[in-house]
Amino acid sequence: MMSDRTLDRGVVSSHTVFGAPCWVSLTTRDLRATEDFYHAVLGWEWHSGALGDQYRFARVNGVPVAGVSGMSGIGPKMATWTTYFAVASADETVSRSQERGGTTAVGPISFPPGRAALLADRDGAVFGIWEGQLVAGWEAWRRAAPVFVRLHTRDAFDAAIFYAEVLQWASSDPASCQVDYEDNEVVLRSQGDVVARIHSGAVGAAPDPTIRPHWRVHFAVDDVETCARAARAHGGTAHQQGAGSTEAILSDPDGAHFSVSSQDSR
């Protein structure tokens, strides 16, 4: 989303790819402990940028992959990962969301070189939008950390309609995302690659009222088991399907959930 002071070359406009995830950001109570955890689990290195020491950039091989901020009066009030989607106009996107039953928690507000807003869809799942310049190398960012993001919700088709209309998926613009249905999930592709999935259970099943709709970030890793062990050793939790599993659900010491997936399991 926001570029740091050292990334002023090669930034691209969100207009070159819109409707797709473009950044992920974590709010936490303890920045130092959070940095130590994600360094141990994902190998991230940490740097400050234009927003000061209270917003830290994580990097993998020099590529900015995520942001972490301490809790404040703006944004989520619990430790959580938030996915941001690139949009051409934050104001227009907020209006489309509100017209379709979504809510606006924050914004749009200015974060040079762009504008952001924090929204919730009509089923309560929180997501962010970003209008403006992206960190250099959008494809490098996407491959360096987020494999994809997945929305767990009560009604995948209803959610897909909401996001398609709000984020302009499947439009005639070549920069927009394509939507398919595969393996009981709505699948979002950008430039041919899977960038998001929407899941709500088996086809034809009634919406599950026990599900708390949310977006979960999946990070690409070389070894899922190694990450799971590191998470447990550094105050977090890890839940796996079994030995050799290609995916695990982890939480950091502050309770923020995310997933790690093998590089080829998208």
Rank of each mutant, 00 (worst) to 15 (best):
Met2Lys: 14
Ser3Phe: 12
Asp4Asn: 11
Arg9His: 08
Ser13Lys: 00
Ser13Pro: 10
His15Gly: 07
Gly19His: 05
Pro21Phe: 03
Trp23Pro: 00
Leu26Gly: 03
Thr28Arg: 14
Ala33Thr: 08
Thr34Trp: 15
Asp36Tyr: 13
Tyr38Thr: 08
Tyr38Gln: 13
His47Val: 11
Gly52Trp: 13
Arg56Gly: 11
Arg56Asn: 08
Arg59His: 15
Arg59Val: 05
Val63Arg: 08
Gly67Cys: 02
Ser72Pro: 02
Ile74Arg: 15
Pro76Trp: 05
Lys77Ile: 12
Met78Ile: 13
Met78Ser: 14
Ala79Glu: 15
Thr80Ile: 09
Ala86Ile: 01
Ala86Met: 00
Val87Arg: 01
Asp91Trp: 12
Asp91Ala: 15
Glu92Ala: 13
Ser95Ile: 03
Gly101His: 14
Gly101Cys: 03
Gly102Phe: 01
Thr103His: 06
Val106Pro: 12
Pro108Asn: 03
Ile109Tyr: 14
Ser110Pro: 08
Pro112Leu: 07
Pro113Asn: 01
Ala116Trp: 01
Ala116Ser: 12
Leu119Asp: 14
Asp121Met: 02
Gly124Asp: 07
Ile129Phe: 02
Trp130Val: 00
Glu131Leu: 00
Val135Leu: 08
Val135Cys: 09
Ala136Gln: 02
Trp138Ser: 06
Trp138Asn: 03
Glu139His: 06
Trp141Leu: 14
Arg143Val: 12
Leu151Met: 09
His152Met: 12
Thr153Cys: 14
Asp155Tyr: 13
Phe162Lys: 11
Tyr163Ile: 00
Leu167Ser: 00
Gln168Leu: 08
Cys177Val: 15
Val179Met: 10
Tyr181Cys: 04
Asp183Cys: 05
Glu185Tyr: 04
Ser190Lys: 11
Asp193Lys: 10
Val194Phe: 13
Val195Phe: 07
Ser200Val: 05
Ser200Glu: 13
Ala202Arg: 09
Ala205Leu: 07
Ala206His: 06
Thr210Phe: 14
His214Asp: 15
Val217Phe: 00
Ala220His: 15
Asp223Lys: 10
Ala228Ser: 03
Arg229Trp: 11
Arg232Pro: 02
His234Gln: 10
His234Glu: 12
Gly235Ala: 13
Gly242Cys: 07
Thr246Ile: 11
Ala248Gly: 06
Ala248Ser: 12
Ile249Phe: 09
Leu250Cys: 08
Asp254Leu: 03
Asp254Val: 06
Gly255Asp: 09
Gly255Asn: 10
His257Gln: 12
His257Tyr: 10
Ser259Thr: 02
Ser262Leu: 06
